[in-house]
């Protein structure tokens, strides 16, 4: 029942080998299922008391059903599937934001997630203040953040606007800032949910370059996008979800080819 993120003995504590040794799973899903209740009014006390009194079970639907896969260090995984197939739920379980109902999620190392444009950003704070807040949310100390601050700003290319409130930024600018922070946190696993499409060509290329640099450093990438061309370029593995189940898992080009050839199903229920 219990979700457990494995707490394994630290590896790579010697500086000679900073990356997790290749061939070892950095992310493992074991028969992970996640359900959501079907009605929206469940957060009302009246509702809770009624269902307690009548002992009615609210109907649930499976966002993920028995999902198992394994990802090795330096791999990069594309997650594809229709809307509502469970892609975002999968990422939320991987990052530990949500806990699965059953099964195990094992993570080795740190995860930084770009889950939604501007997540962890506040519109009334300036870019610089948001960088500090975001870095601290992602687990950096003050010293590390101050060390990295200039590089974050430089990579984002937003030096002229960094002391303006975030609400004056365009969505592309917000993406630049978010990506710059997440990359500088130097995570072992970087999770990107449907974001890169917002950036302009120049920044997208910069991101792709940075992601490739991370991969060469032994880091792992998980990417959700509807831009299949981008996924083919970035990823070497792919996971195809359909109605919360794994339809296919394998080399990126094969899975994406099959996904493109398949007729589109409706929204999962």
């Amino acid at each position: 029942m219990s979700r457990s993120i494995a707490t394994q003995p630290a590896i790579g504590n010697d500086l000679a080998d900073p990356a997790p040794s290749a061939g070892h799973a950095v992310l493992r899903f074991e028969a992970v299922s996640k359900t959501y209740a079907h009605n929206a009014a469940r957060t009302l006390l009246r509702r809770g008391m009624l269902s307690w009194l009548t002992r009615s079970r609210t109907s649930v639907f499976y966002a993920l059903r028995e999902v198992s896969f394994e990802l090795h260090a330096a791999a990069s995984l594309a997650v594809v599937g229709a809307n509502g197939a469970g892609k975002s739920t999968l990422l939320r379980c991987a990052t530990g934001i949500s806990a699965p109902d059953s099964g195990r999620v094992e993570v080795r190392g740190t995860i930084a997630a770009l889950m939604e444009l501007g997540a962890g950003f506040h519109p009334d704070l300036t870019g610089a203040e948001n960088v500090m807040l975001n870095a601290s949310l992602l687990g950096l100390t003050r010293r590390k953040t101050c060390e990295q601050f200039d590089r974050i700003v430089e990579f984002s290319g937003l030096a002229d606007f960094i002391h303006e409130p975030l609400r004056t930024y365009s969505s592309g600018m917000v993406l630049r800032l978010a990506f710059s922070v997440a990359v500088r946190v130097d995570p072992d696993i970087l999770v990107i949910d449907e974001m890169l499409s917002v950036g302009d060509i120049e920044f997208q290329e910069k991101c792709v370059g940075e992601i490739k640099r991370l991969k060469q450093g032994g880091k792992t990438l998980i990417c959700v996008a509807h831009d299949l061309k981008l996924l083919r370029n970035l990823c070497d593995r792919a996971l195809w979800l359909e109605h919360g189940r794994v339809r296919m898992f394998g080399p990126c080009s094969e899975v994406v080819d099959a996904y493109e050839a398949a007729p589109a199903p409706g929204v999962s229920d």
Binding site: R3, T7, G12, L15, G96, G109, T110, G139, D186
Partner: peptide, 16 residues
């Protein structure tokens, strides 16, 4: 297990 008490294995060179 609470998120706050997760202790994840980290390379020493990591920024975290």
């Amino acid at each position: 297990m609470s998120n706050g008490s997760l202790s994840l294995s980290l390379p020493a060179s990591s920024g975290l």
